[in-house]
Nucleic acid binder design. Structure first.
Lengths: 218, 218
DNA sequence: AAATAAAATTAGTCTTGACTAATTTTATTT
DNA sequence: AAATAAAATTAGTCAAGACTAATTTTATTT
């Protein structure tokens, strides 16, 4: 099996691949993990030797079929543990990500499946991300952000793109969670900030960065 | 906090201390962990620097107050996770130990307490070992073994001293679990093997090693 | 007490996965 | 196209935590 570090790289590559359809460069991985690009180059060699990725200067890093499978399992475990922590252990929204980062590395062939069953086969995790099934398939991923909504339009918060506790705590303060209805009242051209109405209540202004971190269902 | 390796040493020292009242030597630790004594000497230095243990050639290794506290928490987490795996995820008796070895290292200030609450504050784990409470206290540990029982005597299996799957599978085959009633029919002086009656049924002969691995309540 | 065996320790090596600094390659400007 | 900037890579270092081999210390026998 893979080391902790290898698994973290795999997951990171998987997430970059899902997020952007773009080319995955060593620098992008380095930024995402907070590592030095030189370290990334070392690990690219290691994962290539293990046939988990292919690396080509033109195409960037790509997961092999095996790499995809392994990365999907790590993500599955992460999201299942998040559901467990929130629903069974009553953790708050903003606390679960970091703990799940550790739990996702527990290695046992049947653990994810047993946990899945115990939790009642959830489709989405508490941040709105789809949980890969045992066969690797998963429900729809939302990709439209609040910033993409046209002025006057309504939407439902489907997921969050950012799982840092600072962002999640801010959302809680604004009374926004998965499922909350939002209307985009106005876009301020100056800095792309957004004036929104949350759940039919008064107006609030949020930044462009905020708008791009909220995934919606129209 | 401590590294994975430091935690494993701490737990090992704690268990040796609980098991035998004896002096804990580098060699004993090395054997218990399957490591080289030279590596143990290195780690003894590290844990001493961190003030988690004291080492004296005469007295051997001893946990400091802080070391005891930290080790107890690791054992608490281990045993709680074992209950979770068996009761909630339907794992078998012999499968849970190794997974709990990984889970016990998940670091979060409130995880053990939340898990404890979720499980209904169990007193003993599935192997009959007492689970330390949040305050460090714990229920009685059984220390009499089946081999200590006098001929003709009856007992109840209270705990197992060995958590390897080979031993636990053997117990399952013999239909022995925590709570099973056993009578010691005869001790064979030649090799100290034991003739026992399990739950009032026919006779079986087991080895001395077996007898010393079963903890009983008389 | 001397001889021997066992345990503890030191010294030096190896692997993993990070780092910095220097260099080469590739992109972007002017 | 040349100059510059950015990205990728190489080379060498470091810490953790394991190892082996050699040595010293402590215990046990005879």
């Amino acid at each position: 099996m893979h080391t902790l570090s290898e698994e973290n790289y795999l997951k990171c590559i998987y997430c970059l691949w899902q997020d952007k359809g773009q080319k995955i460069t060593p620098t992008a991985i380095a930024e995402s993990l907070g590592n030095n690009p030189a370290s990334v180059v070392d690990m690219i060699r290691k994962l290539t030797d293990k046939q988990l990725i292919n690396y080509d200067k033109k195409k960037g890093v790509e997961l092999t079929a095996q790499g995809q499978k392994d990365a999907t399992l790590i993500v599955r475990r992460h999201r299942l543990w998040e559901v467990f922590l929130l629903e069974k252990l009553d953790y708050d929204w903003d606390e679960i990500h970091d703990i799940a980062e550790e739990l996702e590395h527990i290695k046992d062939a049947s653990l994810a499946d047993r946990l899945d069953k115990f939790l009642g086969f959830p489709e989405y995790d508490p941040h709105g991300d789809p949980i890969p099934k045992a066969n690797g398939k998963m429900a729809k991923r939302y990709s439209t952000t609040l910033a993409d909504l046209k002025t006057g339009g309504y939407c439902r918060v489907a997921a969050v793109k950012d799982t840092t506790s600072s962002f999640l705590q801010y959302l809680q303060k604004l009374d926004i969670s998965i499922g909350t209805k939002i209307q985009l009242i106005e876009k301020i051209p100056f800095d792309n900030s957004l004036v929104i109405s949350i759940g039919g209540n008064g107006r609030t202004t949020v930044s462009q960065k905020f708008g791009e971190s909220v995934l919606i269902d129209i």
